[in-house]
Amino acid sequence: MSAKKRMSSNVARGDETTPEDPAKIKADKEREAKEQMSAATWNVTALKMLNGGRLIAAPVAKKLARLSRMGPSANGAPRDRARILDLGGQATCDWAWHCATEYPNTKVYTATTRSQRQLSNSNIHGPANHRQVTVNKLTSLPFKDDQFDLISARNLAHILKSCSENGEDEYDACLAECMRILKPGGYLEFNLLDSDIMNAGPLGQAKSVEFGFSLKTRG
């Protein structure tokens, strides 16, 4: 039965509630999708602007682009694809999806903690060459030695602590894991979060001090 007929039946019976308008449902879903994508899109756009229009600043980007243009080997066997790890990134609609789309012959993994996974909609399916891996901590990763050509760690300042509850320096432990799973000659990209604002006015300077105190409190 169509939505229009169901609505007519409800009105005839005097029901208090009427079915949702399909057009409204579609519009609401589109609005929710845009809201979920907007922050990630801004983040990727800003990163590319800082990197001169590139997703990846490291020289390995040239290798990834070359591999993405190559087909199977002469005997038809698939080539060994490069692997990229998005460490601590958002698993949906963010950097890893853009990376997987731009370099289709690579395998892109996003490693997130369980608490991070709860903040994102894991039911959204991305590119076929992207995988999401959930871990308890980023200091213990379920990957083999020498597995990745590139590890991108852009958000560790929001996740790791210099002194965890058990006294562990999570930055040191995470770096050791990165070096273990990184291939010889591979690249590790990461961002440093600095509370100092260059050429700040009175308001900016006050915010800088407040932000620095917050970072110190978080460890």
Rank of each mutant, 00 (worst) to 15 (best):
K183I: 06
A74I: 10
P104T: 07
P22Y: 14
S120G: 00
Y187T: 05
E165I: 03
M37C: 07
E32S: 13
T17W: 09
G88P: 12
G126C: 03
L67C: 09
K34I: 08
P59V: 01
A27E: 15
E20T: 03
L87Y: 01
A46I: 02
K216L: 12
L64Y: 03
R218H: 15
A12W: 09
R154N: 09
K144Q: 13
M198P: 05
R114N: 02
G52T: 08
T45V: 09
T113M: 01
G53Q: 11
G14T: 05
E32A: 15
F190M: 15
G89N: 06
S208D: 02
L150D: 05
N51V: 01
S120E: 14
A82I: 00
D21E: 15
K161A: 11
A128Q: 09
L203A: 08
Q90W: 03
Y109A: 10
I25T: 13
T112V: 14
G212H: 07
D194N: 13
F143W: 12
E210G: 01
Q205N: 03
A46Y: 09
E165D: 12
L119M: 14
D15L: 11
T217F: 14
R69L: 11
L192M: 08
W97S: 15
V133C: 11
S140R: 06
H125V: 11
N136C: 00
L85W: 12
T106P: 00
R180G: 06
H98W: 10
T134H: 04
S115H: 03
M37F: 01
N166L: 01
H125N: 02
T113K: 00
S214A: 13
L87I: 08
A77C: 01
D196Q: 09
R131I: 01
P78S: 12
P202T: 06
M1T: 11
I197K: 05
T217K: 15
L67R: 06
L138Y: 02
Q147W: 09
A157D: 06
Q116H: 00
G212R: 07
D196G: 02
Q36K: 12
P22F: 14
L138P: 04
A74L: 11
A40P: 10
K29S: 10
L50D: 07
I56A: 06
E177I: 02
G186W: 10
V133M: 10
L85V: 13
P72C: 09
M49K: 13
L138G: 07
R79E: 15
L193R: 09
